[in-house]
Write a protein that binds this DNA or RNA. Structure first.
Lengths: 142, 142
DNA sequence: GGTGTTGCATCGTAACGCGATACATCCGGT
DNA sequence: ACCGGATGTATCGCGTTACGATGCAACACC
């Protein structure tokens, strides 16, 4: 099933390259792990936090459509639908009609969602400060 | 359920801070998404690729114990056991006895696992080059 | 040599993302 | 103004996966 046209564009990797790649992945896992434990302590699932952050952190706006969220979260549309359903059931987000497109839905944060997200995001900022350069992707300017 | 002792250590976040946090998360999701689609095209699950990479990329070694892998993958021990089981079933890794500790197990790559990992890792290196600064974590030196 | 600790493994369970599918709304061409 | 294709949201059933609980063998220390 290997696609024939995705040949790598460079020399084979050295032991150090594998280590660098693995360390980066390790950094990501550590960060996501911290995130998961933190948000769960506040009664949210990791996906819910990501949803709230994607809404509040949407460029130049404070809301987003389901489709836009699917792009930002890199999920299928209906996965986001279910995610929004669960978050709405917990009072974290709300659906409001889109002003110009009757198909689309504006997903917005509730006051509660706003409050929790503020606290969780501050904790994530602190953790990012703490991890510092551990999260930097490797470079290959050898 | 909110722990009382995890108060954030800084000022509340601005809109830009939320956007920076969301963009970083977006970068991670995009990278993981690329990774998932790439490795699946080669018949592996994302976890299996991470497993192989963690073994080959283990500092100063080419093997690791289940426990060490659990740390690097940020999983519980038995989750790694099951992961190794599946990977072993596909001929990607092997278990060999630990030389000095009869409890522990050395998890090593097979020739097949080695081959696939080399190709996949090269593709990941290319993708990291492509994403460039998009994966840099935000900084708060405001 | 007994007791606590460490490492690997098994079983049942719950959550999550997905494919397949359905339906309403928008848009462009004639 | 209409009709076909595209777009956006939603529902259902399923497979995968990480987990908690539990068990067992091997080590370490006094």
């Amino acid at each position: 099933m290997a696609a024939p046209d995705d040949a790598p564009g460079g020399p084979p990797l050295s032991k150090r390259d594998f280590e660098a790649l693995a360390r980066f992945r390790f950094g990501i896992r550590r960060y996501l792990r911290f995130s998961e434990e933190t948000v769960r302590r506040h009664g949210l699932t990791p996906q819910q936090y990501q949803l709230l952050l994607a809404i509040k952190g949407f460029p130049d706006r404070d809301w987003a459509t389901v489709r836009e969220l699917a792009d930002r979260l890199q999920l299928r549309h209906h996965s986001v639908v279910e995610l929004v359903n669960r978050a709405q059931g917990q009072g974290l987000v709300d659906r409001t009609p889109h002003p110009t497109d009757a198909r689309a839905v504006r997903v917005v944060l509730t006051a509660e969602g706003e409050r929790i997200l503020a606290r969780l995001s501050a904790l994530h900022r602190d953790e990012l400060r703490r991890q510092d350069t551990a999260l930097f992707p490797p470079t290959w300017e050898g």
